[in-house]
């Protein structure tokens, strides 16, 4: 019998490790607008373009970061991939199979999600043991007398020791970092192949964030495919293998994390990096931006970033830029890179 609590079931040995475990193809999610906001827009059936044509893939043993500001659609992507919401169009493939053909329980077992707020994602009236035993039983990973050992093994996996002591605790007896570790252990209890982490450290104290990121890094090294949704590009550079940058519901740049963070190709990525706090630079960079994020109900024509872009050309306000290859595995949707080989 495989050890029930350890989390990752023969991931590395499974089929096609070099293929994507979870893949999104041209995912679109539009939310209907109701009420006064809807009447303010002429035309029929206004929608919020939360995600448009988002494609990405999660590989076993790799971390893919989705970086963007609030309203960029990054959390929508995580929720789509978790099947908490259904896409308007596009396809999700789990281990090469269309997700809608995968039974819900199997999908849940293989794809788990952890949320930003560890204070509201745990039930205040249930013990740590209950939180971890339930998914173990539901997914048939442990039963009867094995449950206690499996729960403790999970707690040890997330460095909550002495494990026996933590099993009895209630969420209010734990610090924020400890709660997030319990949430991660709960996700591991299902024995997933994919972990979707939606801003897992942004509500935690700065001194304990790296502890959580390093724990996720260990899980990655064990073969888990991880989606890391964040607004913090420095932590994505530190922790992720690839970075996908989203703006106004669309992917604007994607590539190996060092390439994206060190040689950003899209003006929006450049702006994000310039605006990020950076004690290493001698003097703060001055940024000049015109306006804020665009409306997602009536997004700008052409490139959605063009109203704020310092390099905007005529074409940018007319035609949406295709995806251009700017480096090895590095792509950007920006007309500045026209002439370089277009990606397929």
């Amino acid at each position: 019998m495989t050890q029930p609590g350890i989390g990752i079931p023969e991931a590395a040995g499974g089929a096609a490790t070099d293929g994507a475990v979870l893949q999104a193809r041209d995912l679109v999610k539009h939310f209907r607008v109701h009420g006064r906001a809807a009447r303010a827009v002429r035309g029929t059936r206004p929608v919020v373009h939360a995600a448009d044509d988002v494609s990405l893939q999660l590989l076993a043993g790799r971390v893919t970061a989705v970086v963007g500001e609030s309203g960029s659609g990054k959390s929508t992507v995580a929720r789509l991939l978790a099947r908490l919401i259904t896409p308007t169009s596009g396809e999700i493939l789990l281990e090469g199979r269309p997700a809608r053909r995968v039974p819900a329980r199997e999908y849940r077992r293989k794809v788990q999600i952890i949320f930003q707020d560890p204070f509201s994602s745990l039930n205040p009236v249930h013990s740590v043991r209950y939180h971890l035993a339930r998914p173990l039983k539901i997914h048939g990973r442990a039963g009867g007398r094995d449950v206690g050992a499996a729960v403790e093994s999970l707690l040890r996996r997330v460095n909550l020791e002495p494990a026996a002591e933590f099993t009895r605790k209630l969420p209010h007896e734990l610090s924020g970092g400890q709660r997030q570790r319990v949430a991660i252990a709960r996700a591991l209890a299902a024995g997933p192949r994919v972990l979707l982490a939606d801003e897992p450290v942004s509500m935690l104290d700065v001194s304990i964030r790296l502890g959580i990121l390093n724990l996720l890094g260990e899980l990655r090294d064990d073969g888990l495919a991880i989606l890391y949704v964040t607004h913090d590009i420095a932590s994505a550079r530190y922790f992720a293998n690839t970075i996908t940058v989203m703006y106004a519901g669309q992917v604007v740049e994607s590539g190996p994390s060092r390439a994206v963070a060190d040689q950003p190709a899209h003006p929006y990525t450049q702006l994000l990096l310039l605006a990020a706090p950076d004690p290493d630079r001698p003097a703060p960079e001055r940024i000049t931006v015109t306006g804020g994020a665009p409306s997602l109900v009536t997004p700008p024509a052409g490139c959605r970033f063009h109203p704020r872009c310092p390099h905007a050309m005529d074409v940018c306000s007319v035609r949406q830029p295709p995806v251009f290859t700017v480096g090895d595995g590095h792509t950007a949707a920006c007309w500045l890179h026209e002439g370089k080989q277009a990606a397929t």
């Binding site: 610090s175 700065v206 964030r209 420095a234 530190y238």
Partner: peptide
């Protein structure tokens, strides 16, 4: 420890540990 809790935007990526324990 606080300074070691913020990944840098430049240079080599080195393992950072944050600060052990809880506030």
């Amino acid at each position: 420890g606080l300074l070691g809790s913020f990944p840098s935007l430049h240079g080599e990526i080195r393992p950072l540990a944050g600060i052990p324990g809880s506030p």
